[in-house]
Simulated scan of single mutants.
Amino acid sequence: MLAVHCGPEVTFTGTQQPASYRSSDWAERGFCPTCGTHLFYHLLPANEYILPAGLFEPGSGFVMNSQIFIDQKPGYYDFANQTPTMTGEQVFAQFTKGDDQ
């Protein structure tokens, strides 16, 4: 999934708020309660929201600057631009650090 790291300052507007599911002690997933579309991934210890890039208007100015979960990427494709990469283990280590680390 191409995603945008949005930090803690995420708000949802409209007549219907996203539903959420606490998938672990450190994360919750948000989705549309009507159709089930994935809307966000929230890393709780870091209060980091990650939203699918497809939720934003074209031309929003995002630049791909990293690739995560690279160890789960299918071997039959690569992105043309070179970016820093992280495995799933490295991602969880970075975003689940406590304030004292």
Rank of each mutant, 00 (worst) to 15 (best):
C6G: 13
Y41G: 00
E9K: 08
A80Q: 11
V10R: 08
T87Y: 11
H38Q: 07
V91W: 06
T11P: 01
C32N: 14
F69K: 06
V10Y: 06
D99T: 07
E28Y: 01
I68C: 00
G7H: 12
S60P: 06
Y49C: 04
Y49A: 02
G30P: 08
N81C: 05
M86K: 15
M1E: 10
I70R: 03
E28I: 01
F40N: 00
P74H: 08
A19C: 05
Q72A: 09
P18S: 04
G98F: 10
C32P: 15
Q17V: 04
R22F: 07
M64C: 14
L55F: 14
P8D: 11
G59R: 14
E48Q: 14
G59Y: 07
G30A: 05
Q82S: 15
A19P: 08
Q16G: 02
Y21D: 07
S24N: 13
G98S: 14
L44G: 01
E9T: 08
I70N: 03
A93C: 09
D78V: 11
Q16F: 02
F92L: 13
V4C: 03
P52K: 05
F62P: 11
P52M: 06
M86N: 10
F31Q: 07
I68Q: 02
T96I: 03
E48C: 07
V91Q: 05
Q16E: 13
Q94M: 09
E28Q: 10
G30H: 12
T13V: 10
L55I: 08
